[in-house]
């Protein structure tokens, strides 16, 4: 028997470094790329982060969450608050695109991730007691509560949201964050520790019978997933330059869910493809934009009826014929 020892070489780390290099290279040439294409690329990257992070919660750990846009909102507001309110005080006369500005943005993105992770912790706790559709509802309710709270919080713009957010989001930041999200989730779920996510999803009672703490795994999944959703939110705000509470509503959460379902729950590669596809689709379908949501809906139902394990599930189950 040939043992393929996947863990012997730190290939994933190499991959991450390459991706970061590519991100830097890409941004060096970004002024030669058509701005429209850049925008699409940034949109794709942000959606990849969202889909991959939701996939950790919903796909690998089986905690079906309908509140991912809520985490994104927390991150978007946290990051915008840092650059809008803290930025002018910390770096009053920074050169545009210079080191100081990028350092500030890094700080803003980290704050976004941490704030969202904290929210993830708060939502993760009810998930300890609930499963399936009840959990879906609580996460949905959580997303709505965040929205209502933001709408009522005047220091952050209330229902009108925040405007004039500096356009710090570049291709580099997006590609680097997406690479990091893929790397973290990918490494995690492949490790012995991370197999526990799947074990908890498959059977909580059996998981605790082999010494895994399902509660801990679920909370970890929520915290890490929310962290990256927060970063995606931060990138989104500094890309669009304006955010409103209603931009992070239930429909936004559903869009992310559709990506994960389309790609196949727990299938990182498929989910990335789906995020790309679903970001490009509206661009292609611009002439029939009003049909977009109907199309999403039909896609979702058709998938569940015809290909419940996702569009990109090519791995034929290695099954043993019963002897």
């Amino acid at each position: 028997m040939i043992k393929k020892n996947e863990t012997a070489v730190p290939k994933p780390l190499l991959g991450l470094l390459l991706a970061l290099g590519a991100a830097a290279g890409l941004s060096a040439f970004s002024d030669r790329i058509d701005p429209y294409h850049l925008d699409v690329l940034i949109g794709v990257g942000i959606n990849i982060i969202l889909a991959v992070s939701l996939n950790l919660i919903g796909g690998h750990t089986g905690q079906f969450s309908l509140g991912h846009a809520g985490f994104m909102a927390v991150g978007a507001y946290a990051a915008a608050a840092v650059t809008l309110f803290l930025g002018p005080r910390l770096i009053p006369d920074a050169a545009p695109g210079g080191f100081q500005e990028n350092a500030l943005f890094l700080g803003a993105l980290l704050s976004a991730g941490l704030a969202a992770a904290l929210a993830g912790l708060l939502v993760g706790i009810p998930s300890l007691r609930l499963r399936g559709d009840y959990l879906a509802l609580v996460t949905l309710g959580f997303g709505e509560i965040i929205r209502v709270l933001l709408q009522n919080f005047e220091p952050l713009g209330g229902a009108l949201g925040l405007n004039g957010i500096p356009p710090y989001t570049t291709v580099f930041w997006v590609v680097a964050s997406a690479a990091l999200a893929i790397y973290v989730v990918g490494c995690l779920v492949r490790s012995t520790y991370g197999l526990g996510f799947k074990a908890v999803r498959d059977d909580e009672i059996a998981a605790s019978a082999v010494g895994l703490d399902p509660a801990r795994y679920k909370v970890v999944a929520f915290v890490i997933g929310a962290f990256f959703a927060g970063i995606a939110g931060g990138l989104f705000g500094h890309f669009k330059m304006t955010i409103t509470p209603s931009g992070f509503d239930f429909t936004r959460s559903i869009e992310i869910v559709v990506m994960v379902i389309l790609g196949g729950l727990g299938n990182t590669f498929g989910v990335i493809l789906a995020a790309i596809l679903l970001t490009l689709l509206p661009e292609v379908l611009r002439p029939v934009a009003e049909y977009r949501l109907v199309l999403y809906a039909v896609l979702l139902v058709a998938l569940m009826l015809l290909r419940p394990r996702g569009l990109f599930n090519f791995r034929l189950g290695r099954r043993v014929s019963s002897s």
Binding site: V184, C187, L188, S191, Y193, G211
Partner: peptide, 18 residues
């Protein structure tokens, strides 16, 4: 492997730094 977690598994952080 997943049942070996109790004794040998590396922490989540280690699995990232490799």
């Amino acid at each position: 492997r997943v049942a070996c977690n109790r004794h040998r598994a590396a922490s989540p952080l280690q699995s990232l730094i490799r």
